[in-house]
Computed example of a mutant assay.
Amino acid sequence: MTTADPISGVFAALADPTRRAILARLAEGEATVAQLGAPFPISAQAISKHLNVLERAGLIVRTREAQWRRVRIEPAPLRDVAGWVAQYRRLWEERYDALGGYLERLQKEEP
């Protein structure tokens, strides 16, 4: 999922609910691959594919200690996405404020 636009890769990785659930779990602290796969009714191979997508998007880092494979979240790409969304949040808030003002005027005009 290497793209010229890293934010697109992050959004693509976050498009799947299983990957979002894995990230939510990792937000609580690092875990082994087995721990991450335990709540899901899918194969270890499927979990590995999800982890590959998250890793390519830069959202996780995998390490290996003896026989244990640990995974931790990498928050930097999420901060980048949050910054991108914040630009649009200001726009949405301005439009909602304008709509709120318009609706108030309409209510005052009603008999």
Rank of each mutant, 00 (worst) to 15 (best):
R95K: 09
R70D: 08
A4N: 15
L103K: 02
E109H: 00
F40G: 03
T18N: 08
E65Y: 08
E104C: 07
Q87I: 08
E110A: 06
G101E: 09
R64M: 05
D5P: 05
E109C: 07
V10M: 03
F40I: 07
I73W: 00
A66V: 14
A15L: 11
Y88S: 13
A15T: 10
E28M: 11
R79K: 12
K108A: 10
A24M: 07
P111W: 04
Y88W: 13
R20D: 09
W68A: 15
H50Q: 07
R69V: 13
V61A: 12
I42W: 04
A34K: 11
L99K: 05
V81D: 02
L26M: 09
A82D: 09
R72G: 01
L14M: 02
L26I: 02
L91F: 09
P75H: 04
S8H: 14
A86L: 12
P41S: 10
P75M: 02
G29T: 05
W92N: 12
R79C: 10
I60N: 01
L54N: 02
Y88C: 06
E110Y: 02
R70V: 10
L99E: 06
I42S: 02
G100P: 04
R69I: 12
R70P: 06
R19P: 06
G37V: 02
A98N: 05
A57Q: 06
V10S: 00
R69D: 10
R64P: 04
G83C: 03
E93K: 14
A4P: 12
V53A: 08
S48E: 06
Q87M: 11
L54R: 00
W68Q: 15
G83I: 03
D97E: 11
E28R: 13
I22C: 00
G37H: 03
N52D: 15
Q45P: 00
T18P: 06
E74P: 01
L26A: 04
R69F: 13
A27K: 06
Q45G: 10
W92A: 13
G9L: 05
W84P: 00
A13D: 07
R25K: 11
L14Y: 01
L51D: 08
F40D: 00
T18S: 09
R56C: 11
T3R: 10
A57H: 03
Q67I: 13
G100S: 15
P75T: 05
K49Y: 14
R69Q: 15
L99N: 06
E110S: 03
R62A: 05
L36V: 06
L59T: 07
L91G: 10
H50A: 03
I47L: 11
T32H: 00
D97F: 07
I7Q: 01
A27L: 08
A98M: 05
A27T: 09
L51V: 03
A15D: 14
I47D: 03
P17Q: 01
F11H: 14
Q67D: 14
